[in-house]
């Protein structure tokens, strides 16, 4: 799925920081022969597709209303001579209570095993958007938080302390204004850093201290791991099953969870439509 990255072919030189964008080659719809997979996740309308377009040179539809992207789109780019496949996902508020569009994002994030998950958040609505960041950190710590719309935030008198945010979350946080192409280099560097890091980042995890719950989760997680070889997040699946997640329950009962782990696109056509809540 994700071959070990080849060693850097260009050593990052101190003087070419200004020319970093020159190291970006947009590959359009052709992600063939990629070394690494990067997912673009985030709440609706935070600028994921705008980032996608800036990196791939494609023209995914960008719109100023929630839910513009309803399916996943793929493209490619090359940075420092390494090829990346970039996956643009529909906006989602949550990995836990999902609507049909959101299931596409959830399935890819949880079962698609991207090498790096970039969570695009809106600098003017950080408080709301960090909910999803925390949920994603429970399934992977190979995360970069891209704080987008800093231009808009500045207009509202909001400045974001990226170093502090990054320290609190345990993963890189970079600022950007994707529509103007600002911050692309910082994002690429952070993505590269996480992608090539041999060890996992110390992303912030939420711990539950209830002994009985912990025992139940461990027990069930073991069974999930045995039932679904290759699943990367058996504990997360176990916790969801204990919470009564109907989609996952069906996927397990019908043996579809295995297929999903083999090919995360599988579940897409089979999710049962839910009435959107709000």
């Amino acid at each position: 799925m994700s071959p070990t990255p080849s060693p850097p072919t260009t050593s990052a030189c101190g003087t070419c920081a200004l020319n970093n964008a020159a190291n970006l080659r947009r590959l359009g719809v052709d992600p063939s022969g990629h070394d690494l997979v990067v997912a673009l996740a985030g709440n609706p309308n935070t600028g994921k597709s705008t980032v996608f377009n800036a990196l791939t040179g494609l023209r995914q539809h960008v719109g100023n209303w929630a839910g513009k992207t309803v399916d996943r789109a793929e493209g490619g780019f090359e940075y420092h001579e390494r090829r990346y496949k970039l996956v643009d996902l529909p906006g989602t508020y949550s990995l836990l209570s999902t609507s049909e569009d959101e299931d596409i994002a959830r399935d890819f994030l949880v079962f698609g095993r991207p090498d790096v998950t970039t969570v695009v958040v809106d600098a003017t609505r950080l408080e709301r958007d960090l909910n999803l960041v925390l949920q994603i950190l429970q399934i992977t710590t190979r995360v970069v938080v891209a704080v987008n719309l800093v231009d808009e935030a500045r207009r509202h008198g909001i400045t974001v302390d990226f170093r502090h945010l990054s320290r609190e979350l345990g993963v890189p946080a970079v600022g950007m204004a994707a529509r103007r192409g600002t911050g692309i280099e910082d994002l690429l560097d952070a993505v590269e850093r996480v992608a090539l890091s041999p060890t996992s980042f110390g992303g912030r995890r939420l711990i539950h201290r209830n002994r009985r719950l912990e025992r139940a989760v461990s027990h069930l997680a073991e069974r999930v791991a045995r039932h679904v070889p290759g699943v990367t997040n058996p504990r997360w699946v176990a916790l969801r099953l204990l919470e009564g997640d109907a989609t996952l329950e069906r996927a397990v009962a019908e043996g579809r969870l295995r297929e999903l782990v083999a090919d995360p696109a599988e579940l897409r056509s089979e999710t049962v439509p839910e009435e959107p809540d709000a």
Binding site: Y93, S94, L96, S97, E243, G244, A246, D277
Partner: peptide, 9 residues
């Protein structure tokens, strides 16, 4: 799930 949804929003 509806409680979860409200909290996620």
């Amino acid at each position: 799930p509806q409680r979860r949804r409200l909290m996620d929003l």
